[in-house]
Design a protein around this nucleic acid. Sequence first.
DNA 1: AGTTGTGAAGAAATTCACAGCG
DNA 2: CGCTGTGAATTTCTTCACAACT
Lengths: 229, 229
Amino acid sequence: MGEILSAGSIEGVVRKDVPERVISRLPIYLQTVETIAATGQTTVSSETLATRSGVSPSILRKDLSQLGRPGRRGVGYSCQDLAATLRSFLGLDRAQNVAIIGAGRLGSALADYAGFRGRGLRLSAIFDIDAAKIGTTIGSLTVTDLAELAAWDEDIDLVVMAVPASAAPAAAAIAADAGVRGILNFAPTVLETPDTVRVRQVDLASELQVLAYYSALDSHAGTSEEHSN
Amino acid sequence: MGEILSAGSIEGVVRKDVPERVISRLPIYLQTVETIAATGQTTVSSETLATRSGVSPSILRKDLSQLGRPGRRGVGYSCQDLAATLRSFLGLDRAQNVAIIGAGRLGSALADYAGFRGRGLRLSAIFDIDAAKIGTTIGSLTVTDLAELAAWDEDIDLVVMAVPASAAPAAAAIAADAGVRGILNFAPTVLETPDTVRVRQVDLASELQVLAYYSALDSHAGTSEEHSN
DNA sequence: AGTTGTGAAGAAATTCACAGCG
DNA sequence: CGCTGTGAATTTCTTCACAACT
């Protein structure tokens, strides 16, 4: 009974509450350590892993210390162990069922996005409310009426919301009623959901506007034509 | 003489260095205040604006206090003024030229994304390196060889990187050489760029994995079949 | 009276620096 | 000897609470 990850689930590892800030960095570490493992390296130092992940070594060590499995002092972290621990910690041992709501341009593109499989995510349905789209095929999936989400034969864990802002709140309510646990929202609206449903916001225009700020800032800093070179 | 925003630029407003955390909230406020203004309201309180933007009133007031234009005590903020101030502050007075690199599924979908215009962003080109794609049309744009980015007739301010992870670093280098100021990176790789180029990362799989964590967490909290209802 | 702007307090995140271990 | 794990110091962010102003 020293085994912590016995059931291939989170069991026993999640005791302290880990801040969301930390959680949001773990997938990056997972991605990085998998890339490093793919080159044949068996261990990796906090220095290397941190640099390749875009964070400082101390923050990386603090983060990893939270998940229970220690690295080896003088050596570093075992790539295999670390990847397995991260996957388990993130709840990726069993693939999460993901549905896309919105079979427009963006939804269709995301449906074909290769980055799901192999990352612990299984795209299992795509929904829309537009009769013209229902029944059409995207990749290996058939677009289904959103009304059928609640009765879908596989429980949907997560939803990618790829509908216009005006349609997002109603769709979110349907998803929440259906027992969905998380929504990744591409619509530029703050969604109100019961606290059983966590929302993460991805707003393309906002991100670009942040970049625009720095772009304009630089233009004014060096008012003359060129900096130097 | 007294006019601060005379040249329709940032001039004089940007003195203190504003933390990126704050900057990244401003587009949300802009979005919210525009929505409110569209309903005909002329002023809005920090309470309302904050709630609709998903932040606390105090943080909203702190954020807005940084941009110089005060609200009216006892009344709130003028929707028109605030929107104009935010746009100006973010460098959106002149539309930023945006290019998409990568004319695959995602790049194509983003190219058609309606959310650019009216948000101070002008999509002005889409590039790829695949000869089969170059010359094809997406929306009103023709896919162009990435090699032509450097000599493009309009200066590209910002780039949306929608290429596979393996191709991203090379494409980022080309963009950086061409004088691009910001990259919104959809590829799951940390990009190394000169500090003239700011990168913001949007990783779909990572976002879903964060949601997966909370999803799995809940599953273990309430072990029995249903909540109630 | 009502709502902003803002110091001061409090909380959270990050970095430091080094003890502890392999 | 090298690298992790971690308390303590530091920095950053958020909230509080109220004076200032319309």
